[in-house]
Nucleic acid binder design. Structure first.
Lengths: 241, 241
DNA sequence: TCAAAAGTGTTAGTCTTACACCCATGC
DNA sequence: GCATGGGTGTAAGACTAACACTTTTGA
């Protein structure tokens, strides 16, 4: 293992989850006081990130970040875009920060996102906070764009890939699933029609179990079967441009 | 302008087109004779590529490659993935090649694809050749994977984004369009149903013009209207997982 | 007049949409 | 017994899938 950092290559991670009918993204506090404790020069938020080590792959670097945050290994991360414009780091505070880290101004950032179920707890929460994606705080670098690109990528795939189930707990109710679609796409769906459509899919398997939710009446639980999905999807060809 | 190269950052470009009912990718001959003219140590094919210059953006670097090849500026390129594993350059010939270029073994490659219409001519063809994507020659680096990733990305988007029209000339016939779908997806479509579906789209506009093709009977030409498409697509929300 | 690809219509079945009330339970 | 979210059915209309022949032209 070569633990030296590549000084112009980093991996940024966008962790996302749904909470209270809102899409939330995890950010880390960034602060730097150069002259005095009372004069913070940098005081904003950034995406969790690491420089890539000489003997680490990109995906390994992302996994390390995810693991540090959640304490678990995740298989469903997506590399969605790389940011490497010559002038992407150009504000005074960002340049100062980069210098304080001994890294290059021209840093290439490979961005990943990871979708977590609503009930996932973080391993440690120090300096970390979930923000609604519509009301982000002041962000460093081009992280506003990165977060937005991640969101757009998810939106564009949510209707054709089984991404939505990453937002769900393993066992979920149909109303939870509907609410997830509605929140992510910003639309409203007809409950009866949604249920008919979803329950007609062989890869959404009803369980005997029920769960008591916010309602008085217990609701039936369902699971997503990846195996069944992969079989079914093979034969599906709809021209839909 | 700083014309020095970043010695660990390159952009690879996958140029694609349809020709004779086959998807083709453009490759560049790579050869290096170290000891004698008759003993080629490296003799294979690679994707068109450039190292990124210190003052160039990633997209600019891709544009430069595309422009050198086609003599035109293209707006519809897609950055689809970045390759930066520690050991992605590991064969003797690839290491030799990298060394001969004065670059780093740990080179990060940002990959773009560009879809060209069938009739597009290259500016120069020296050392360049179009290969069927199913029968690629011996390739350098991980370019086999890169090409395949590009193809998968296109396939996954072809039914939900108007990507297909990049493969077409500005004016095209419905049968050409159908054939493009069939080639890309490896499926067969019913001609009557396809025509009905396509002609029902407001963004596929019939022209008065006709063209004489391979057939005796001239065929009507159509165009794709991006403006109309963007308006229509807004209101389209189909949950289709 | 024939060869070649272009172009066309109908029907049965399936899927989608719109819509309003009862159910099971906890309090 | 009532408040809360869970859960259900139907009918009209739209879309899809399957299928075979005629048209226009060049040679």
């Amino acid at each position: 293992m070569d633990f030296r950092k590549l000084d112009n290559l980093s991996v940024d991670c966008v962790l996302l989850k749904l909470e209270n009918n809102a899409l939330k993204v995890l950010l880390r506090k960034r602060s730097l006081n150069l002259f005095s404790e009372n004069l913070p020069i940098i005081d904003d938020w950034v995406l969790p990130s690491h420089y890539v080590l000489k003997s680490n792959n990109l995906g390994e670097t992302a996994n390390r970040i995810f693991n540090e945050l959640t304490g678990e290994n995740h298989l469903n991360k997506s590399q969605f875009r790389t940011y490497g414009n010559a002038n992407r780091i150009n504000s005074d505070k960002d340049l100062l920060w980069i210098r304080s880290r001994g890294a290059k101004n021209r840093t290439i950032t490979v961005a990943y996102y990871l979708i977590l179920p609503s009930n996932k707890k973080l391993k440690q929460t120090e300096g970390l906070k979930w923000f609604k994606i519509q009301t982000l705080p002041e962000l460093g670098f081009d992280h506003h764009k990165i977060i937005n690109d991640a969101y757009q990528d998810i939106k564009s795939k949510i209707n054709t890939e089984p991404l939505i189930f990453n937002f769900m707990q393993i066992k979920f109710t149909l109303n939870e699933l509907q609410s997830a679609f509605e929140t992510l796409l910003g639309i409203e769906l007809d409950n009866r029609n949604f249920r008919k459509k979803i329950t007609s899919k062989p890869y959404i398997v009803p369980l005997e179990e029920k769960r008591k939710g916010q309602s008085k009446k217990p609701s039936r639980l369902y699971m997503f079967s990846n195996e069944v999905y992969n079989q079914v999807v093979e034969t599906d060809h709809i021209i839909n441009i």
